[in-house]
Design a protein around this nucleic acid. Structure first.
Length: 434
RNA sequence: GUGGCUGUAGCUCAGUUGGUUAGAGCACCUGGUUGUGGUCCAGGGGGUCAGGGGUUCGAAUCCCCCCAGCCACCCCA
């Protein structure tokens, strides 16, 4: 073949398109149920918007271009900067909390691999305004709600959360700072992917100091957070110096856990100190949705990013949200055999009893479509058997067979039952056969 | 950017130690069973064996290059 799709992109033939729509419909309906409004932004932006958020190095991972006026542009690799830009522009006019969602098509100039393509769709759900962990919890609830709609259960996926704030505080109290802190976080992020020995060796290299190393390992072993204990007690049992920041971060984790429980999704969620979320802009609670076997990369990731609007030139306004891509989710749904039969048939298939009645067929089809019915017909004039076969293959519910002398047989294709009526009736009121 | 694996029909795959005109199933198209579907029967289209070069009397098969796909690393918003 001379022309092939670009590396890392997908063609959506009707079958794949049904799957994509099925997922997007679940995302959209869950969003609306949970009180979010849909927005969208341009598919390309000024390159600055992305480098301002993520640094100049990000440019090499973007598809960027220069327009004829010499402007540096980039295809959006994420929508959060655009969201921040849009919200900043109207921050004083928007009622809060701002609860918005989007399902953008995104592009990243990466080498494709399992669960990662160069073009994909990502559901984004954000709440801007509240500082309360209730917002973080409501985002998680929305994610769970969509996954539930798609047929997943808490036996399939878990929302693993931690506190970026607490982790920073722990590292700092152990004297791990600056580059070392960044290195340690990078290693922690791999914890669930590496064998224990290798992980500890890498961690040891990043930390350097033995006392600090022991402190980090003790912190990592923290189990579920007791909702009833005082933050100071929890800090003590996790070997964390009970600074003001540390106890505050622990209290936030407790509040977050309480909201998850109140929303009825506690069994979908668990505290996991191994969640770090890269070195991005997160400032508080962070989480990733993992498949229970942890064989796939994260299905979704998000958390609190209270500084982003300010970084992008706006006021200091708190924000929290997540992104869920269609690629890993699609793999998981397929593995769990949750996709089912997505074929969508027409309602009615209109058939001629003899070729000379074909003009009546297109007449009836036209009338049916004018009242909103999904009606189809065969382009070829052939016997009734072949036309019925075609009706069946199109997934039609009923066949409308036009016979001589104005007689019409309505055949239910599932039961095989037929009822008769008059062509004149159908033409005057097509809704009688719906 | 680095590394590993794999490329035969739209899909899943056969193809012997190199040997005539590269096959099957499914899918697709046509026709039949002479006016009621999910069957059945018959026929048909479709492949420069990813592409290029080499070895050989002869290459889908052996060697080299390249391209593409998959997978992992880096990175992961």
């Amino acid at each position: 073949m001379k022309f092939i799709p670009v590396k890392g992109t997908r063609d959506f033939y009707p079958e794949a398109m049904r799957m994509r729509n099925w997922i997007a419909d679940a995302w959209r309906s869950a969003s609306l149920r949970n009180g979010f409004e849909e927005y969208d932004s341009p598919i390309f932006e000024y390159l600055d918007l992305f480098t301002a958020k993520s640094g100049d190095e990000i440019a090499s991972q973007l598809f960027n271009l220069t327009d004829r006026g010499g402007r540096n542009l980039a295809i959006r690799p994420e929508i959060t900067p655009s969201l921040a830009r849009m919200v900043n522009a109207k921050i004083n006019a928007l009622p809060r909390p701002i609860k918005w969602f989007s399902i953008p098509r995104l592009c990243r100039a990466e080498r494709p691999q399992k669960g990662r393509l160069r073009e994909f769709f990502q559901w984004n759900v954000d709440i801007i305004g509240p500082q309360d962990e209730l917002a973080d919890a409501e985002c998680v609830l929305t994610a769970v709600d969509a996954m539930r709609e798609l047929g997943l259960t808490s036996n399939d996926v878990q929302v693993c959360y931690s506190s970026r704030e607490l982790l920073s505080e722990v590292l700092e109290s152990l004297g791990v700072k600056g580059q070392s802190s960044a290195d340690v976080m990078a290693v922690l992020d791999k914890r669930n992917k590496l064998p224990a020995e290798k992980f500890e060796a890498m961690l040891s290299d990043a930390v350097g100091d033995k006392t600090a190393m022991a402190g980090i390992l003790k912190f990592l072993d923290t189990g579920a957070i007791d909702p009833d204990a005082s933050p100071a007690e929890i800090a003590a049992s996790a070997g964390i110096a009970p600074s003001e920041n540390a106890t505050a971060a622990i209290a936030k984790l407790q509040a977050f856990g309480g909201y998850l429980k109140a929303f009825g999704i506690a069994d979908w969620c668990r505290y996991d100190t191994g969640i770090v979320r890269g070195l991005a802009y997160y400032t508080g609670i962070v989480y990733e949705v993992m498949d229970v076997g942890e064989t796939l990369r994260a299905i979704a990731g998000g958390g609190r990013y209270d500084n982003l609007l300010e970084v992008l030139g706006g006021p200091a306004v708190a924000a929290s949200g997540f992104g869920m891509g269609d690629v890993v989710l699609g793999i998981l749904l397929e593995e769990k055999q949750l996709i089912g039969d997505l074929a969508q048939g027409v309602e009615l298939f209109v058939i001629d009893g003899s070729a000379d009645m074909f003009s009546d067929v297109i007449n009836v089809v036209g009338r049916l479509r004018s009242v909103g019915a999904a009606a189809e017909f065969s382009y070829k004039r052939q016997n009734i058997g072949k036309q019925l076969k075609q009706a069946d293959r199109r997934g039609a519910c009923k066949a409308v067979i036009l016979e001589p002398d104005g007689v019409v047989m309505i055949k239910d294709l599932a039961s095989g039952e037929q009822t008769a009526c008059k062509l004149a009736e159908i033409l005057s009121d097509p809704t009688t056969i719906l």
